[in-house]
Design a protein around this nucleic acid. Sequence first.
DNA 1: AGTTGTGAAGTACTTCACAGCA
DNA 2: TGCTGTGAAGTACTTCACAACT
Lengths: 236, 236
Amino acid sequence: MAQLAPAPSPRGVPEATVARLPLYLRALTSLSDRGVATVSSDELAETAGVNSAKLRKDLSYLGSYGTRGVGYEVEFLRHQITREIGLTQDWAVVIIGIGNLGHALANYGGFASRGFRIAALVDADERRSGEEVAGLKVRHSDELEDVIETLNISIAVVATPAHAAQAVCDRVVAAGITSILNFAPAVVQVPEGVELRKVDLSTELQILAYHEQRKNGAALALTAEQAVELAKAVRG
Amino acid sequence: MAQLAPAPSPRGVPEATVARLPLYLRALTSLSDRGVATVSSDELAETAGVNSAKLRKDLSYLGSYGTRGVGYEVEFLRHQITREIGLTQDWAVVIIGIGNLGHALANYGGFASRGFRIAALVDADERRSGEEVAGLKVRHSDELEDVIETLNISIAVVATPAHAAQAVCDRVVAAGITSILNFAPAVVQVPEGVELRKVDLSTELQILAYHEQRKNGAALALTAEQAVELAKAVRG
DNA sequence: AGTTGTGAAGTACTTCACAGCA
DNA sequence: TGCTGTGAAGTACTTCACAACT
């Protein structure tokens, strides 16, 4: 079978835009809850926390869903974005690694309301097998491949310790999974065609620390060149 | 006092580079643990999961820490990056909202080993006050400002429900915090000069769903134009 | 009159490819 | 010889500013 487009985004929606669609969806849901029927790009951008030129450009990749001189119909636009992201169907998710974080993810209410169904929980520790978490029995990781196939899982959430992450990813990929969300603080390699996203808590804190240091230590963190500039400035 | 540079990054390290420094640091730590003393940009890039041109360019913003023809000295480079990020000091963190996620974050071992010290836990629910989590007593959110000042907190981690997030951020900013990591699924506005990063679990899943849909539904997701192209191609 | 949708300009990031140095 | 450090070229994203439309 010939491929029509180079794998992702047939209509060529930029990756940066895709990453913002969930944000717009949330803003629209919030407006909808407040009973707002129509919204301008300025107002919607404000609600979503982006600038309006960017918002309009982003939406233009999906189609012409607004009305000039008026704005966007909230429900209509919400439906279009929902469809674009693929949330008109629901996606079965397996969480692998039921430690503190896995527990928290299993109990996180935000998934179900957004088109994701946590279909299975898996852990390598036999003592956890059978334990009930968030209304689901934890299964032993021997059953991982079986669970993925039987329950028609599309997305794997990896919440294992770092040392186990690569092996787990290898197994779910071999079982046919092509979308992985990795919480383990480890570099994981996956083959071409498998989408891997990572959420790394300490990385985020480190980025904050970097900026915090720049703010506090401005005077201490002068480079040699800046010191020279400063000296010149002081001399007049 | 005159500002020497436009607030962040005196030496002008690009934001994209800053976001990768933690990755390099982790790769170097792993090499160091394995007893590797020297590493080439190719090897380090492989370990960190990026390409080597990008790695060399990134490192070049920090200085010339390698040796041509040889590579980088692992311990030395690790120290330089640690210093650049600001992890030679440790940073006091408060976690606000001790639900499932807050619990998981409090118990997450990865922070301490990377220069972050969880100094306080705060929750709005009075029934939680005094409860011990991860060796710390949960304090009531009335004490938030006091905790921040007394314990010299630099970074606030917000793990509250969405509806409380903005108010909490307003309060910590008023108390002098300039770095916030937000896990609440809400758009939060902060003043200029406050660094806000967000981690949004369902957004990540939605991005995966988007790509998953493109893969599976290739044939179903044809646009009108593509259908015409396909028809032409089939006709010959 | 008012707001979208979008070419064009501007900015940021990535990759190439090789000069420069150990 | 081999590998770093970096200008230059290429790509992706953002912002501007206004024509097109209701």
